[in-house]
Design a protein around this nucleic acid. Structure first.
Lengths: 152, 152
DNA sequence: TCAAATGGTTTCATAATAAAACCGATTCCA
DNA sequence: TGGAATCGGTTTTATTATGAAACCATTTGA
């Protein structure tokens, strides 16, 4: 593989995001963290990921500030992996992925897990809007590039 | 690697989504497609991706229904790679990634490209809401699992 | 107090990736 | 019109990332 190109210097925020969480496992780990999992074994069993890979992923997610390792809430000797504020801010990303999956990756009527408000059970939805509230989509928006660099 | 586990059968829509577009290059290609790129060479130069990899990724993105290859709009002999409706529906995912990157991956004041409404220049934003309009976040929502399977 | 589970690390085989060379078809340009 | 350069890939080869399994120290449980 020689070296996977880093997008760290890219001036497109999406590219930088993908540079940080764009690999195969990271977002799945984050999903499980949102779901309340905190322990090594829980992630490992739930995802069916090899332990060495999980170990390395947790390390880099911590290094990048998305997870933190805290010394066990229940007094146990193990540590817990928890989302940081930065990690919790990935919530809209997860919801967007979920929504797209629901739309396009399930047969009509096929069962799937749902995201709902805890107290009311009402479904949760996400949409893109212009600041004033009008809906935004690919057709009425553009990406404004950084002037000098002409890079996306 | 033996075989990378497929999440196709998973009952979590996020997992299925990641199964389809969760690899390193696919979303970057989609981003460029949103940005108006259509030709092999444009993607290749813009991303700095190896040609064989790009070739293979385009093939699978087409196979999965996210891109389609159409016979050149300007009469040229080449083909164009365009987003399908399913591909365009990834718009919220891209916006979510962009928004997270803006928040956390740029130094204060550091320049980056921006997504705005074409006609007005107004910034575009995305947020997660309960159906009745109230904001939703990790703290007031839960994932409702599929009953029998108890799988996420 | 012994056995099993937890939370990893190390080793090894293999698959995915990248770079470069190559190639036919098209486009540019003088 | 002829030749060179560009486009859109495919093939080959080298290297890296991944996954499985073995291993191990520490905790937990019976």
């Amino acid at each position: 593989m020689v070296k996977r190109r880093s997008l760290k210097g890219d001036y497109c925020p999406s590219a930088r995001s993908l540079d940080v969480i764009g690999d195969w496992w990271s977002l799945l780990i984050v999903r499980d963290a949102f779901d309340g999992l905190t322990r090594f074994g829980e992630f490992q069993k739930g995802l069916g990921i090899a332990k060495n890979i999980l170990s390395e992923r947790l390390r880099t997610l911590i290094a990048r500030g998305i997870l933190e390792a805290v010394p066990a809430a229940d007094g146990g000797a193990h540590q817990e992996y928890r989302l940081t504020a930065m990690g919790r801010d990935l919530f809209p990303v997860m919801v967007a992925l979920r929504q797209w999956g629901e739309q396009h990756l399930f047969a009509p009527g096929e069962e799937h897990s749902k995201l709902v408000e805890r107290d009311t059970g009402l479904p949760v939805r996400l949409d893109v809007r212009v600041n004033d509230g009008r809906p935004a989509g690919p057709d009425n928006t553009v990406i404004l590039k950084v002037p000098e660099l002409d890079q996306d």
